[in-house]
């Protein structure tokens, strides 16, 4: 129900409370009022209708992949 696209923060405008975010080479300004944590260049955010709704800690992406490998290992054992 909600198209969410991850992107990398390139620049933050404190007084307008927005961030310039790079989505695979396409840059777009995204509003930060709804984000769950302060962001800085280099962070990843999840964009939905032009608002950052989540700061994605890079290690979380790695953790999710490890979770899948764990699932596979368990499934193989059964």
């Amino acid at each position: 129900m909600c198209l969410g696209v991850p992107g990398k923060v390139v620049d933050v405008d404190r007084d307008r409370n927005t961030a310039t975010v790079d989505f695979w080479g396409v840059k777009k300004e995204v509003r930060l009022e709804v984000c769950d944590a302060p962001v800085a260049p280099g962070d990843y955010i999840l964009n939905h209708v032009g608002f950052a709704i989540r700061r994605i800690p890079p290690e979380e992406a790695v953790e999710t992949l490890a979770l899948y490998d764990e699932l596979l290992r368990l499934a193989d054992d059964q």
Partner: peptide, 18 residues
């Protein structure tokens, strides 16, 4: 929670408040 890179147990408290 199979989507830990985006989802936590409490979620985005600030957004919920808004």
């Amino acid at each position: 929670n199979a989507y830990p890179r985006c989802v936590t147990r409490e979620g985005n408290a600030h957004a919920q408040e808004l």
